[in-house]
Design a protein around this nucleic acid. Structure first.
Length: 424
RNA sequence: GGAGAGGUGGCAGAGUGGCUUAAUGCGGCGGUCUCGAAAACCGUUUUGCCGGCAACACCGGCAACGAGGGUUCAAAUCCCUCCCUCUCCGCCA
């Protein structure tokens, strides 16, 4: 959510930002409503002040056993007026709120302006793509052959878009989670969190998934609860409605969770194997920082995510996303994409976003400086560190051997009970 | 799922319609005292919004006692709905 003061004073910048994010919003209408509401508010508050003073007087008169009939009649009338005017203020307030919660975060000045993904900029790449002396297979074929991935049975159990890992495949999944968490805790100083996988509406609102993306979420008990689409939701909401101490910042959390996404409207896209599934595992990094540090912290956060791919020696590239391609709540976002030789393209394994104070405002996450009286909103950032299925894909495809076996990356061997190769 | 108790300021804890827009204690902050510290004493101590203002300083106002609604001139206090926490019972990994 943006600050109404900011919108008032920078309406043109807000309009421009909304356009850059491909979002239609009627800022002019919002400004009119805001103006109306504030002028009404002044009148209502004056009347309430009058009522408060009169009520005190009535109290005094009653205590002294005197008659307060006249003033009582007057107050009855005044109270009705207040009620009437208050209703208008509240209804304006609701209209304003409904518009406000749908205004996206504005892109940062370093975010390239462009309507879609074709305007994303590749800013770096790492690792050499392996040259194969045989035709590399796609992961689903490798996985089915080794009997470590069973998509057919997953669809029997649940439906299309689910993965069933078996034997060394299930172990690899678990090994990756453990490796990632250990790296982020031990090398990067994040605190490990194991959050609920089901959250309430307030939490989903706080991070910005609802109302805009509500249809992409799995819900429970008639939309009272939601299966989390990412650990970002429960972890960011840890500090909802809190005032953090300045010297505790930055706060860094790492959490493994499964993620549940309906992927509504994406049928037919990225359907190969387990590239796009409704349930997947992910290790997520979340930071709460002071505003002046957030862009420095954003760069560091990107490095933390990249580190995982470096450790696994998987070739990847980093994209700086264009304004039209970044999420509703983000001001700036990098995507990390890992190389998939079997599919012959890059796959997104991480989104590293700076939300500035957009989520903090929605979730009311603040901090207080020692030097100031006023509270301020923190900046929140998060990054996948990293998503599992596509990392699993990249390992199978990049480390495949001609005989169909898969070599285990060195860093994973201790997490795989010493296993060096997955063979039939 | 059933029965009961309860949700008040950072914490503890008063307060059942108007001398309470919340007592008191603890903690925090500032000060006195001290070589310094402790103790003691004095002061201070929530958040949001609106208006004035160059100002997050200051002044004035409105609101908030789990959330929402109702009664009333007036609600922390009375009524209704919901949420949460705790205790006991049932079920259960």
């Amino acid at each position: 959510m943006l600050d109404m003061h900011f919108i008032r004073e920078n309406s043109e910048a807000v309009k421009k930002g909304c356009r850059a994010k491909n979002t239609q919003t009627d800022i002019d209408h919002l400004l009119v409503l805001d103006e109306e509401k504030r002028s009404l508010l002044v009148q209502v508050e004056e009347k309430k002040h009058e009522r408060n003073s009169a009520s005190k007087e009535i109290g005094v008169l009653k205590r002294e056993g005197k008659d307060a009939g006249d003033i009582l009649d007057k107050m009855k009338k005044l109270s009705d007026e207040i009620k009437e005017a208050d209703e208008i203020v509240v209804s304006r307030g609701k209209e304003i709120y409904e518009i406000m919660i749908r205004i996206p975060n504005l892109p940062h000045e370093s975010t390239p302006v462009g309507k879609d993904a074709s305007f994303n900029k590749e800013i770096m790449s790492w690792g050499e793509k392996r040259t194969f002396d045989f035709k590399p297979k796609p992961h689903d074929e490798i996985g089915e052959n080794l009997d470590i991935l069973d998509i057919k049975r997953a669809s029997k159990i649940t439906g299309s878009g689910y993965a069933l890992f078996k034997g060394a495949g299930a172990l690899l999944e678990r090994a990756l989670i453990n490796l990632m968490i250990d790296v982020h805790v031990e090398d990067h100083g994040f605190k490990e969190i194991a959050p609920p996988f089901i959250v309430n509406r307030k939490s989903m609102f706080g991070t910005g998934q609802i109302p805009k993306m509500e249809e992409d979420m799995y819900d429970l008990e008639d939309k009272k609860f939601f299966l989390i689409p990412t650990a970002e939701v429960p972890v960011t909401n840890i500090h909802r409605d809190e005032i953090l101490q300045e010297d505790k910042l930055p706060v860094r959390y790492v959490a493994y969770t499964p993620c549940f996404r309906r992927e509504a409207g994406s049928y037919g896209k990225d359907t190969s194997g387990i590239t796009r599934v409704h349930q997947f595992d992910k290790v997520e990094l979340v930071k709460f920082v002071k505003p002046e540090d957030s862009y420095k912290e954003h760069e560091e956060l990107l490095k933390c995510s990249e580190k995982i791919l470096k450790i696994l020696k998987l070739p990847y590239r980093v994209l700086l996303l264009a304004s039209g391609d970044i999420s509703f709540a983000a001001a700036k976002c990098y995507d990390i994409e890992v190389w998939s030789p079997g599919l012959d393209r890059y796959l997104e394994v991480s989104s590293c976003s700076n939300f500035e104070d957009f989520q903090a405002r929605r979730a009311n996450i603040r901090f207080k400086r020692k030097s100031k009286n006023k509270t301020e909103f923190v900046h929140t950032l998060n990054s996948s560190g990293v998503a599992l299925p596509r990392t699993f894909i990249a390992i199978l495809e990049n480390y495949q051997n001609e005989d169909g076996s898969v070599t285990i990356p060195d860093a994973l061997i201790p997490y795989m009970r010493g296993m060096k190769r997955i063979e039939k």
